[in-house]
């Protein structure tokens, strides 16, 4: 299979096959910490994606100028600069979201997903594919955060994106907006997504098999 080199293969890599949250369990602290609501999930995902995109671009551009030995500290400084930019921008324009994400905005700097992509991908590839990598990984991360946020919000507060769909005094599963619910919801979500992806892959493989076999048998006849 040449799926790793193809454009489409790269496009789906970050979103499905190597999804940072579901497949690789990277950057879990914000995933669990801020997903009490779907809005927070999207906000955190986008903030991380912006940092990821910026740092991947800069790392891909300066990779030949950095001596091998100090590359990790250099990458960390690049990432920290972008985190500061995002932090201050959000504080100025989205104060409410900034308030509810709180500590986890400056903590993007220690998100292993971002350093991991800088080290494992951007430092070895040209600009264009590093940008593509950052975008797909960012979409995958945002998607995972939004899904978890939505599940927790629906179960925990009976609303989605702040729009309530149960009666005001209805009893909801409060557990899911509290810390233990984050762990439990993510556990079941990962199990579900991974099973689904595995099934889809098996189905695709089976279809490929039959497609390639049919002309062969017909030719033999």
């Amino acid at each position: 299979m040449s799926d790793a080199s193809g454009f489409r293969g790269q496009l789906t890599k970050g979103i499905f096959r190597e999804n940072p949250v579901f497949a690789m369990l990277l950057g879990m602290c914000p995933v669990l910490g801020v997903t009490g609501t779907a809005i927070n999930g999207i906000g955190m995902g986008l903030a991380s994606s912006v940092v990821l995109l910026g740092s991947n671009i800069v790392v891909a551009l300066i990779k030949d100028l950095i001596p091998e030995k100090v590359r990790i500290p250099a990458y960390i400084v690049v990432i920290a600069s972008f985190v500061t930019i995002v932090d201050l921008t959000m504080a100025a324009y989205l104060p409410d979201l900034h308030e509810s994400l709180g500590l986890f905005i400056p903590l993007i700097v220690v998100n292993c997903l971002i350093l991991g992509r800088a080290e494992a991908f951007a430092s070895r590839n040209v600009l264009a594919s590093s940008v593509l990598d950052a975008v797909t990984m960012g979409v995958g991360f945002t998607m995972a955060l939004t899904m978890l946020g939505a599940v927790r919000e629906i179960l925990g507060s009976g609303s989605l994106f702040g729009l309530a769909f149960v009666a005001e005094d209805a009893t909801t599963m409060l557990l899911f907006i509290m810390p233990p619910g984050a762990f439990i919801a993510l556990g079941f979500l990962i199990a579900g997504v991974n099973t689904g992806v595995k099934k889809a892959r098996a189905l695709a493989a089976a279809r490929r098999d039959t497609v390639s076999r049919v002309p062969a048998t017909e030719g033999a006849r």
């Binding site: 369990l25 233990p180 984050a182 762990f183 439990i184 556990g187 079941f188 990962i190 579900g192 991974n194």
Partner: peptide, 17 residues
């Protein structure tokens, strides 16, 4: 389906509880 990461997370959830 629960092997590995998922069961660890659910366990952590019970511990958090």
């Amino acid at each position: 389906a629960m092997q590995g990461g998922p069961i660890a997370l659910v366990t952590a959830g019970l511990l958090a509880l």
